[in-house]
Design a protein around this nucleic acid. Sequence first.
DNA 1: AATGAAATGAGTCGCCT
DNA 2: AGGCGACTCATTTCATT
Lengths: 155, 155
Amino acid sequence: MHNIDETDLQILTLLQPDARMSNAALAKELGMAPSAVLERVRKLEAKGIIEAYTTQINPQAVDRKLLSFVFIKESTPPGDNRVAAQLKNIPEIQELHVIAGEDCLLAKVRTADAQSLITLMREKLGKIDGIVSTKTTIVLETIKEKNHLVIPASL
Amino acid sequence: MHNIDETDLQILTLLQPDARMSNAALAKELGMAPSAVLERVRKLEAKGIIEAYTTQINPQAVDRKLLSFVFIKESTPPGDNRVAAQLKNIPEIQELHVIAGEDCLLAKVRTADAQSLITLMREKLGKIDGIVSTKTTIVLETIKEKNHLVIPASL
DNA sequence: AATGAAATGAGTCGCCT
DNA sequence: AGGCGACTCATTTCATT
């Protein structure tokens, strides 16, 4: 498959919680030459194993205080992704998943407040054909939000 | 308050999708001296506005193929966070939110497969006092998963 | 994967506004 | 307080082995 070895897994383990770690520091941790490590990192990027380096910003600081999950029921037949394609482009929708059971999409939505959520639902979701109903769950408090993966010791 | 100005917002906008961008590149984009930009970045970190720099890893590549959302109903009185405190330490639980309506927690869980989800529920959730019931929603397909915030032009 | 040299970037300082 | 420019040191990059 992707031919990912234990050194690669170590690189991922180190980089996952600290994307701005210098290549030199990474090399020191691994006991390897910086250039060798850098080449591995570039390959992980090229293969799409490293998808992106992102900065986690405190949502409060930029006035995105409300988090909610919206279940969206579609009328379109399975395999039809027209609704999803439109929802995908809404920037307030951080995540969009197709879920099992009910023929539903689940969206993770971040807005300034309840008012702007309502506006979003009315102005944007309301205009998408094929949405039958929505069910919104408001988050009162986030206890944990770390999108870190458990990286196994080997594969 | 936090006294975050438009330059700071621009820094966040640039850094959010590219945490490994060099300080020099950042300074060039902003038309400022690198030292001045660096000082701002350090302050954003110190204030907790920048929470972390993380590397997004393709879950498939490290054998974390199954994503699910688990609603967890508690028997404990409101304000009692003993259940949440234990759930928080489970590494497969990436997110944990207190949600409105039903007295529920919502967990975003990533495991290798259905079998390991079952094991997790039995071995870990099953041993936590105060959990009344769980309802699991399996993700069939993730259409979008970008935890980027919409950063306003001003605050 | 290691080396070494050149280029680039980071962090510090004193000074200016 | 925030920004600048110059400096030194660290890091990255690239050609070569």
